[in-house]
Design a protein around this nucleic acid. Structure first.
Lengths: 182, 182
DNA sequence: GACTCGTTGTACCAATCGGTACAATCTCCC
DNA sequence: GGGAGATTGTACCGATTGGTACAACGAGTC
């Protein structure tokens, strides 16, 4: 009955809050309201396929809403501001955590190494393109893009560790000036 | 036979590489060479007690080697440089991951919320003290300390996600100038 | 030798894990 | 109504989970 596409965000939330290994089939059936029968009908590959498709969906969302605008900016400064505001929305101002980061730190990293690496690599590359459009040298653009991606991840970790989502908001606002500083 | 104190680093490494939930008793017995009998003799509280004591040991190490020197600096600039080099050593230049961060992102966060929060709070506080000694205002010192802690965590995430520990080294070296910039 | 006491291995427990099998059901088209 | 194919619930599987019970072992001490 339920749309398969509507399933992925729910699965994503379960993986996000419990981790890959922690997201048991019991939790998944509870969250989705679907029994194992339906689950394995939609995802014959089991948990791994679920996680893969969730990662692909996240990747697709970022590609369309964040990365692509950065790479093809009419105004690069506006594109960068749009990235920061899009990221703020996506991570619910620091209340939500990054599933790709969670998997990267967890033991399941090896199984999803390619997708995890691609996600961060494309983020950094796209941002570096926009920064070059603002007149920064290739070396500086790459380093600042790396700094931005890493700061966002670190802010999510710290926000969750301290139970203080304001850390995330502060970091994004500082990034706005630091990215384009002289 | 084995010294109980010598057990904690081994346990720490298992938790670090497999996460709290992923560190099964089977893995722990294999890594330590101790059967369940010995394990539960030393840690009647089971896995949770093991993790608690490992966290306490890590906390103690950072307190003695990183935090305390920051709070009582003869030369604050040297203390900050010592922190960066100590952190570089501890995290093996980005090859090792932060157990406290791993737990913060995982589902076990709630069980260790106090210790996780304390660790990061004391890190930030200690660094802020050193920065104030360098002449920074209280507000700026606090924000820069937060930025440093969060950058280190983010660098560890990104280094592991991309399989490139150089990210961590670059971040530490940039932090050195960014922390005390005008 | 007998006593203790800290330590260890092993057998065992109920619960849960991810996954499979399959019959029952639903939906849609003819 | 009847057939077809997608969807679903449920019972079940072997393996593994964290944890317990307990008997055996070790080194000292008297």
């Amino acid at each position: 009955m339920k749309d398969r596409a509507a399933l992925l965000p729910i699965l994503g939330e379960v993986f996000r809050t419990h981790g890959y290994e922690g997201a048991s089939l019991a939790l998944i059936t509870e969250a989705t309201g679907l029994g194992k029968g339906s689950l394995y009908h939609f995802f014959p590959g089991g948990k791994k396929q679920m996680a893969e498709e969730v990662l692909a969906e996240i990747d697709g969302w970022f590609e369309a809403n964040i990365f692509a605008p950065l790479r093809d900016p009419s105004d690069p400064r506006i594109a960068i501001a749009a990235m920061l505001s899009g990221v703020d929305d996506y991570f619910r101002s620091g209340h939500r955590v990054c599933l790709v980061g969670v998997i990267a730190l967890g033991h399941a990293r090896d199984e999803f190494a390619v997708q995890v690496n691609d996600y961060f690599a494309r983020w950094q590359d796209s941002l570096a393109v926009a920064l070059r459009c603002c007149g920064l040298s290739a070396v500086v653009a790459r380093r600042r893009a790396e700094d931005a991606v890493l700061s966002i991840q670190g802010a999510l970790v710290l926000a969750r560790a301290r139970g203080d989502s304001a850390v995330f908001t502060r970091t994004l606002s500082e990034l706005k000036t630091r990215l384009l500083a002289a």
